[in-house]
């Protein structure tokens, strides 16, 4: 199935941290088709553009998806006002997700609100992965119980050391690679973090896939605004985050 647009009920809403919300949405068709790394776009009442949000959970049996997002501006604030029982207008599933190929072991690196798309990967890899998460400070920490429940080894970093270890995810990544070199590294987070992760992966000759963010228009590949510089067939090509991504092989991306 390709993407569809529709209004679906929010069956659960919780707050994970200050201004970070967790919606469970009942949409069986979308849940059946969705893959880790894909995203949805949410219509915000009164705003001309939809807001892209990555999939934090895909429950094919119960026909639900989980959307974890942070209030970044007025549009996401509006969406955060939706309540349990309300209908949410989404287009999904969108984009290309993570390519698992035959990778047996993985390190997942999530920074801040880039952490949610790592949860579905942890569910797949379980004890065969290490989930490294980084946040600014203890009040920002989210999803650690979800990672633990998958059987993954979890490593938590905060910039100020108020929870977990003090420091950046890149230091933790180096240590985990020393302990056991993974087949693949998956990452999502702020651009400096992504760049740091990709450099380390390259040093160690480990392939990496990164989930990128860019301001979007249509979300389906028609308007071409969300350009990402890549190399395709040896030539520079501006790919589009909504259609060619959001997950890219980092070797293809020009930083």
């Amino acid at each position: 199935m390709k993407y569809v647009q529709g209004k679906y009920p929010i069956i659960a809403k919780t707050t994970l941290a200050r201004e970070v919300y967790d919606f469970t949405v009942c949409c069986p068709k979308i849940a059946r088709a969705a893959e880790p790394g894909q995203f949805v776009t949410i219509a915000a009442d009164g705003f001309p553009l939809r807001r892209p949000v990555s999939l934090c959970g895909i429950d094919k049996e119960n026909g639900t998806i989980r959307l974890v997002f942070e209030v970044r501006g007025k549009g996401t604030k509006e969406i955060s006002g939706l309540r349990e029982g309300d209908m949410i207008d989404i287009i999904a599933p969108l984009g290309r997700g993570f390519r698992l190929k035959d990778y047996k072991t993985a390190i997942l690196v999530g920074g801040g609100i880039g952490t949610p798309p790592m949860v579905p990967l942890a569910k797949i890899y379980g004890e065969n992965c290490v989930a490294i998460s980084g946040f600014r400070s203890a009040p920002n920490v989210i999803l650690q119980e979800d990672f633990k429940a998958t059987g993954a080894k979890t490593v938590l970093c905060t910039d100020d050391g108020t929870m977990g270890r003090k420091g950046f995810v890149t230091e933790a990544l180096r240590e985990e690679i020393e302990i056991k070199k993974p087949d693949i590294i998956f990452a999502c987070g702020p651009s400096p973090m992504i760049k740091g992760v990709v450099d380390i992966a390259k040093e160690h000759g480990i392939p990496s896939q990164i989930s990128l963010e860019e301001r979007m228009g249509c979300g389906i590949g028609a308007c071409l605004v969300c350009a990402c510089r890549t190399v395709r067939n040896g030539e520079e090509f501006y790919a589009h985050v909504c259609q060619d991504g959001p997950v890219f092989e980092s070797k293809d991306v020009i930083f």
Binding site: L49, G75, E214, G217, L224, C226, F237
Partner: peptide, 23 residues
């Protein structure tokens, strides 16, 4: 043509600014 560098879109009150640049 590849067009301009991103960001190429910005939201405005009831509108959208774009600068794709004919990709």
């Amino acid at each position: 043509r590849n067009g301009n560098l991103a960001p190429r879109i910005a939201e405005t009150p009831s509108g959208i600014l774009n600068s794709v640049g004919l990709q």
